[in-house]
Design a binder for these strands. Structure first.
Length: 257
DNA sequence: CTGGGGAGGGGGCCC
DNA sequence: GGGGCCCCCTCCCCA
C-alpha cells in the first residue's frame, strides 16, 4: 500500500528513480537490499539472460535459509538495556494512543544509561549523553549495546528515535476518519485512505494498470519481465516475488533446499 | 498449486 | 529531533 503517495515527491530534490521501476528488469539498479546479495548465479543458463540484463541478477534461492530465518518471537530480555517498560506508567496498550492526535512523546519518567548508570530526566538528555560522552569514552558500540527497549514487545534499539518510531506501531496514533482503522504513521494512513477513495496514482507503463501503492506497482512490473528476479537454483525457474519462490521450494520442487 | 494484487509494517535517509 | 518519504518485505486473499 501507499508508502508512496506523495506524487509531488517526484519533483522533489530526492531523486525517486522511478525510471528504475521500468528498468526493474535490471534489478542491478533496483536497489536490491544488501542482505539479499545478488546471486552470482552460475547461470550456465545464459539462455535466461538472453537479452535481459536481469539474468545475472536473479536471486539465488540458496540464500533462502538466511532470508527466512525465523526471528525469535520475543527478543531475549537482555540484561543491559534499559527497560522502559518498567519506567513508564502509561495506559494499557489496548487503548493507548488510539487517537488521531499526533503521536505524543513517550511518557518516560526516568532514563538511565546502562553503561555508566547515570540517570536523566529526559530521553533526549540520555540520548545526548550516550552519543556524546558515554559511548565515546567507553568505546561502547551502539550496535552491540542496545539501550532502548520497547515496553510492548521487548524489541531493543540503539537510539531513542528508532524506539519511538517503533512504539508507534504499538500505539497506532493515526486513525482513518472513514473506518477508524489505526496506523503507525501518517503516510500509512494516507495510503489506506486511498483504499477508500480509489485513487491509484501509480500506473504501469506497459499495461496501464494502476496501483495505489508504488511497491505494488514495482511487484507488478516484475510480471512483465520474462526473467524474474528470484530464481530457483534447482530448476532455474524464476519468480517475480520471493514469496512465490519460497512457496515453490516448500511445495517440493527443490527438496534439497 | 501458482501467480498476482491489495494492504500494511519496519528501517533508513534526507530535510 | 521529528516528520516526510522511500525502499523492501510480508501476509492475505483471490482467480
Amino acid at each position: 500500500m501507499p508508502r508512496s503517495f506523495l506524487i509531488k515527491k517526484y519533483f522533489s530534490s530526492k531523486k525517486p528513480n522511478y525510471s528504475e521501476l521500468e528498468s526493474q528488469t535490471s534489478p542491478s539498479s533496483a536497489g536490491v537490499p544488501e542482505k539479499y546479495p545478488l546471486a552470482t548465479l552460475p547461470t550456465g543458463e545464459d539462455s535466461l539472460s538472453a537479452g535481459c540484463s536481469s539474468a545475472g541478477l536473479v536471486w539465488d534461492i540458496g540464500l533462502l535459509p538466511a532470508l527466512y530465518t525465523p526471528t525469535p518471537a520475543t527478543a531475549p530480555p537482555a540484561a543491559g538495556p534499559l527497560d522502559l517498560s518498567s519506567l513508564q506508567s502509561c495506559s494499557s496498550e489496548e487503548d493507548e494512543g488510539r487517537t488521531s492526535d499526533p503521536p505524543s512523546p513517550e511518557p518516560v519518567e526516568v532514563y538511565r544509561c546502562q553503561h555508566c548508570s547515570k540517570s536523566y530526566s529526559g530521553a533526549a538528555a540520555l540520548s545526548r549523553h550516550q552519543l556524546s560522552r558515554c559511548g565515546k569514552g567507553k568505546a561502547v558500540a551502539p550496535a552491540t549495546c542496545p539501550a532502548f527497549r520497547c515496553k510492548h514487545c521487548s524489541k531493543e534499539y540503539t537510539s531513542l528515535g528508532a524506539l519511538k518510531m517503533h512504539i508507534r506501531s504499538h500505539t497506532l496514533p493515526c486513525v482513518c476518519p472513514t473506518c477508524g482503522k489505526a496506523f503507525s504513521r501518517p503516510w500509512l494512513l494516507r495510503g489506506h485512505i486511498r483504499t477508500h477513495t480509489g485513487e491509484r496514482p501509480f500506473s504501469c507503463p506497459h499495461c496501464n494498470r494502476a496501483f495505489a501503492d508504488r511497491s505494488n506497482l514495482r511487484a507488478h512490473l516484475q510480471t512483465h519481465s520474462e526473467v524474474k528476479k528470484y530464481q530457483c537454483p534447482t530448476c532455474s525457474r524464476t519468480f517475480s516475488r520471493m514469496s512465490l519462490l519460497h512457496k515453490h521450494t516448500v511445495s517440493g520442487c527443490c527438496p534439497s533446499t
